[in-house]
Design a protein around this nucleic acid. Structure first.
Lengths: 223, 223, 223, 223
DNA sequence: GATGAATGAGTCTTCATTCAT
DNA sequence: TATGAATGAAGACTCATTCAT
C-alpha cells in the first residue's frame, strides 16, 4: 500500500522534487565532504555547504545537530560502505597470492584512491587532533581492516611458500604508505603544483607491485 | 628601609615584561609551529600562540603582520635550514650505494622525521588548498630536493652496476612515501590511537631499506 | 494549566526578535546618521548604532557590508531625496525675484537646515579627508545644485532689472555661507554653548534676506 | 651663571640639537595640528604625530599627558596668540569705519584664514561633541572676541553716522559666516574637489566687503 | 518541513599608554 | 631625557546557531 502511494506520488508530482526531499541528507553529506576536504573543517562555512546542497542554512539543522555532528556523520557514513565492499572477494579467492596482491593494490585504487572518498583521509589527517574519536574510528574502521586484508594476503603467500617469510606487520605499514600518501597528496599539495609531476596511477601501481613482489620473492639469500 | 624593601621587590618581583627583541621572533615561530601543527591553522588562536611564547597578544604584531604572515614566515624560515643541512654529505661520498641509501633513510629520519619540523608536512597537507603558494614553496624546497638526493643515489648505483636499472622517478615516489607518511601520521592520527600500533623507527627503517635493496638487487630475471 | 501559562507567556513576552526586513535598513541609517553626526565617524561604535536601531551587532552586517558602507549609504540615500524636493518650485515661479529669494532662504531652512539632514554637512566637513569621494559626491549633489538655484534667481533678477548686475558666482558663495554655517554650527559648537547665543532662525533669515536685497538693490551709484 | 653655562653649551655643541630640545613642545603641537586637522582626532595615531615631529612615541609623553591633553594644549596654545594680536590695532584707529571693516576682513584672512590656524576651526567643528569644554573655550576665546571687534566697528560706524542703524548682533553673525566657512571649507571639502571651484581670497573678500557696505549704507529708505 | 532574519560569542587587529633600558 | 618594546582594552567583523514565519 505505501508502495502504491509512493508510486502514485511519483507519477503525479515531479519526481525530482520528491527524490531531493528524500536525499537531502546525502546531498548535504556530499557537499560537506567536498568543502571540508578542500578548505578544512574550520574554514568551511555551514552556509556554503547548505548552498552547495541547494538548501538554506536553517534546513541543515533539520538533518544534523550542528557542524560537528555533520562532520562525524560524514566520516562514519562515508566510510562504512567503503569497508564492506572492499577486500571481501580477495581473501576468498583461490588465485595465486601475487595475483591477490595485484587485486589489492589496483582494487584499492579504483574503489578508494580514485574516488572522492580518498579525501576523507586528508581530512582525518588534518583534523585528527580536534576530533580524536573520529581519528580512532578511522583507524579502527579503515586503516586496520585494510591492513588486515593485506596482512592476510602476505601470510597466505608465506604459508603457501609463494612469498618468503618476513615481518608482516612492518611490511603492511610500508606497502600501504604509497597508496595512502598518493590519496592524501591528490587532495592537498598535488593540485597546487604543476600537474605533470603527478605520476599516472597505472605506472605507479605497477611499479609498486613489482617492487613488493621482488621483496617477497622466495629463495633468495638474505641481503 | 623603604629603599631596601623596594630593592627587594625589584629583585624578587619579575618585571611586567622583558626586552628581548632578538629571541621573540624565534619563540613566536616555535609556539606557532607547535599549535598550528597540533590544532590546525584556523583552530589556533593568536592569543594562544602569544601566551605560549610568553608575550601578550599585541606583541605578536610587532614581529609579524598578522596570522597569515606568521604562518608563511614559519614555513619559510623553518624549512630553509632543513634543506641546507640535508643531503649534502651523502652525494659526495665514495661509499657503496647501498650504504648511501641507508644514510639517506636514517638521516632523513633523524634530521627531519624525528624533529618537530616533520609537523610542517602535516600542516602543509592540511592547508595546501588555502595557501597554494606555500604548498608550491614546500614542493619546490622540500619534496623536490629530497627526491633529487634519492634519485641521485639510485642513478649512481645503477651507473655503477650496484643496482639494476629501473624507473627512477616512480621509485623515488614510492620509497619516499613510507617515511613521509610516517612523519605526517605522527602528528595526526598516530597520537590519537593506542601507541603500541606505532612501529619503532629502527625496525621500520631497517625493513624499508631491506625491501628497497631487494627491489634494486641486480642480476635477477624480471618477475 | 501549564498550557495556559505558556500561552500567556507567548502573548506577553515579546519575542527575542522580530522579522522586519523592510524597515531595518532605514532604521539603521537613521541611527547611524544621529551618532555619526554627534560623535564623528571614528568615535561611533557599530554596536551603538545597532543598539539605537534596536538590533544586535550582527544584524547590521545583514544590511551593510561594514562601517564604511553604512557611512556611504547614509550619505547617498539621505541626500538624494533632499535634492529632488528642493528648488524645483522656485525657478518656475512668476513671482518677483525678491520673493524667490525669500522662498529660497526660508525654504532651505525649513527643508534642510532645520532637519537632521543638516547634520550631514557637519559630517562631511569632518570626514572629507577620509572619504574624498563622498566629499565630491556631496559637492556635486548638494552644494552645486543649491548654488545653481540661487544663481538662477540672481540672474533672473538681473535680467529683469530687479537686481543690479554683480558677480553672481561670488555672491552665491557669500550668501550661501550664513545658512550653511548655521547648519554646521547647530550640530557642533552650538549645542556646547549657552543656548541664548543662538539666534532664532526667523530673525536670522529675515536679516540675511534684507542685507542681500540691499546689496542687490539697483539704481545706486557704486560705493 | 646659568646664562654663562648655557652660552658655553650653545657655543660648543651644535646649536640645532639644542634648539630642537627646547622646541620639542612646539614641534609636537605643530605636527598634531596638521594631522588632527587633516585626518580627524580619532583617526590620527600618536605615533604618526611623534614621527612627524621627529621623536619617538614615548617622548611625546614627556611633554603631554596623553592624546587628549595634546589636543587641548594644541587648541589653547594656538588660539591664545591669535586672539591677542588680532583686532587690537583696529578699534583704536581713527580711520573711517568702512576702512576699519576692510582691515577687519582682510586682516582676519591674512592672520587667521590663510594660516594653518584656520584648521582649528574645522577641528573644533568636528570634535565639539567629544570635547565640549574645548568648544566652549573656542567660542569664548575666538568667536566671541572676533565678533566683538566686528560689533565694535559696526557700532562705532552707526554712532558716527557712517552706517545706518541695524541689528548688530545678527549682522555680526551673518558677516562672519563667509570668512569662517571659507576657512573650514579649505580644510575639508575644498581640497577634495576641483580647485578651480575655489574663489581667490581677494575677489571673495572684496565682494564681501562691498555687499556689507551696501547693506550698511545710510540714508536709504527701508526696503 | 523549509526558510532566512536575527543573534552574540569569539577572533583578529589596532593603538593609546606604560616602563625597562 | 629619550627610546621603543610590551601591554591590553576596545572595536570591527564572522559565523554557528536559533527561531518566528
Amino acid at each position: 500500500m505505501p508502495a502504491i502511494t509512493q508510486t502514485r506520488q511519483k507519477a503525479t508530482r515531479p519526481p525530482r522534487w520528491e527524490r531531493r526531499k528524500e536525499s537531502r541528507h546525502a546531498e548535504l553529506i556530499d557537499a560537506a565532504l567536498e568543502l571540508f576536504v578542500a578548505r578544512g573543517y574550520d574554514a568551511t562555512r555551514l552556509e556554503d555547504i547548505a548552498a552547495r546542497a541547494g538548501v538554506s542554512k536553517g534546513t541543515l539543522y533539520l538533518y544534523f545537530a550542528g557542524k560537528e555532528d555533520l562532520f562525524k556523520a560524514l566520516v562514519s557514513e562515508t566510510i562504512v560502505p567503503l569497508i564492506q565492499s572492499f577486500g571481501e572477494g580477495i581473501t576468498r579467492s583461490r588465485a595465486p597470492s601475487d595475483e591477490l596482491l595485484r587485486r589489492f593494490f589496483f582494487g584499492w585504487w579504483s574503489k578508494v584512491g580514485a574516488t572522492k572518498l580518498s579525501g576523507i583521509a586528508k581530512m582525518m589527517v588534518a583534523e585528527a587532533h580536534n576530533f580524536p574519536d573520529m581519528a580512532r574510528f578511522f583507524q579502527k574502521e579503515v586503516i586496520t581492516p585494510a591492513s588486515q586484508v593485506l596482512a592476510a594476503i602476505l601470510e597466505r603467500g608465506i604459508a603457501r611458500g609463494e612469498f618468503r617469510p618476513l615481518d608482516v606487520e612492518v611490511a603492511v605499514n610500508l606497502w600501504m604508505a604509497p597508496i595512502a600518501l598518493k590519496a592524501i597528496w591528490s587532495h592537498s599539495i598535488g593540485p597546487c603544483c604543476a600537474s605533470e609531476l603527478t605520476i599516472e596511477p597505472d605506472r605507479f601501481l605497477s611499479a609498486h607491485l613489482e617492487f613488493v613482489l621482488r621483496a617477497l620473492a622466495p629463495g633468495r639469500t638474505p641481503l
